[in-house]
Amino acid sequence: MSMINIAERHKYILGKLHETGAVTVLDLCKELDVSAVTIRKDLKLLEDKALLFRSHGGATIDNPYTNDKPVNEKESIRREEKNTIGQAAAALIDRNDAVIIASGTTVQALARSIHPKGQLTVITGALNVSLELLRHPEIEVIQLGGHLRNSSTSVTGPYAERVLADFSCSKLFLGVDGIDLEFGCTTTNILEAHLNQKMMAAAQKTIVLADSSKFGKRGFGRICGLEEVDEIITDKGVADHLVAKLEEMGVKVTIV
C-alpha cells in the first residue's frame, strides 16, 4: 500500500477510526508502509481539523479526557443505562452480605435498586448512597467521614481511609469516570482515586459499574489497572473489540 498520497492516507486513517474507535501509530505504519514520523504528522493534522484526538501511541475518535461535572448534572446523563446497570449489580448482593459502595451516579442507581435479603452492611463515603439506603431498616450503613466534596457529595481523605483499614467486605461496587485499556480505571479527582484504592484493599472483589460512554476515557486520577478488576457491568453500547480485550485480560464483562 506504499506510495499513496496524503489525502488517501487521511481517508484510510479516518475510515479505520470510525470502524474501531481507535488506531495505533504502529499498526498504521505497517498498514500504510510509511514511517512513524509521517503517521504522527498525519494524526496532528487531523487533530488540528478536529477530526480525532491524539492519544499515547495513536488516536481515538472520542475525546479521551473527562472533566469533573457536578453530581446533579451527571445524574441526568444516561439515566436509563445507569438504572439497568444498578439493577444488575444489586442482584449480586447476597443474603447477610457486607459490601462497600463507592461514589458516583451509577452506584447511586445501585443503592436505589437494593432490596436486602436478611441483614446487609454497607460501607460508603457517598452521602447520596447513604440517604438512599436509610429507607431500609435492615441495612446497616457505615458512613465514612472526612472532607466532603461538593461536586460529588462524597468524602475523601485520611479519616475515611483509616476507617476502611478495619473492615473486610465481600465486594466493592465502584463507579469510575474513565476506562482505558492501557491506563486502567480513572476518576477526575486524585483524592477520590486514593480512597477507591483503599476500598479495593478492603474488599475481596471489585465490580466496576460504568455505562458505555466511559470506555476510552481518562480521568486525571488513576484508580487501578484493569487486571485488578473482577467484573465490569455496562450497557450494550460497548464495542465488541473492547469486550474481547477485557475478557482476554481476565475481566468478566456483564452487558445489560
Rank of each mutant, 00 (worst) to 15 (best):
G237N: 14
Y12W: 08
I6T: 11
E138Q: 15
I85A: 10
L174V: 02
I114R: 15
I77G: 05
L46W: 01
P116Q: 14
V71M: 10
Q143N: 14
I85D: 13
V34C: 13
T156N: 03
M249T: 09
L174F: 03
I93G: 12
H136I: 03
N128H: 06
A239M: 14
R222S: 11
L28I: 07
I255H: 13
Q87F: 04
L144S: 13
C29D: 09
L191I: 02
E182K: 10
T187M: 04
D97L: 12
A88E: 13
K41S: 13
P70F: 11
R112N: 15
L226A: 11
D62I: 02
E192I: 01
H136W: 10
G225C: 04
A203I: 07
L164I: 08
I39W: 00
M199Q: 04
E161Y: 02
I207S: 08
H241S: 15
D62S: 09
A193L: 03
D68W: 00
Q197S: 06
A202W: 03
R135G: 05
A22H: 10
D177S: 14
R40K: 12
L46T: 09
E192K: 03
L144F: 03
E140P: 01
T60I: 00
G125T: 05
V163P: 00
L209K: 01
G225H: 14
S35F: 01
L133I: 06
A109H: 12
D97W: 05
A210I: 04
K214H: 10
L28W: 03
A7D: 13
L181Y: 00
L92S: 14
T20N: 13
M199G: 01
E73S: 08
G145K: 14
T156H: 02
R40L: 05
L26F: 05
S35A: 10
L181D: 07
K214N: 11
S113Y: 05
D68L: 11
K82S: 12
L181E: 11
R9C: 04
V243T: 08
K74H: 05
A126N: 15
R112C: 02
N72Q: 07
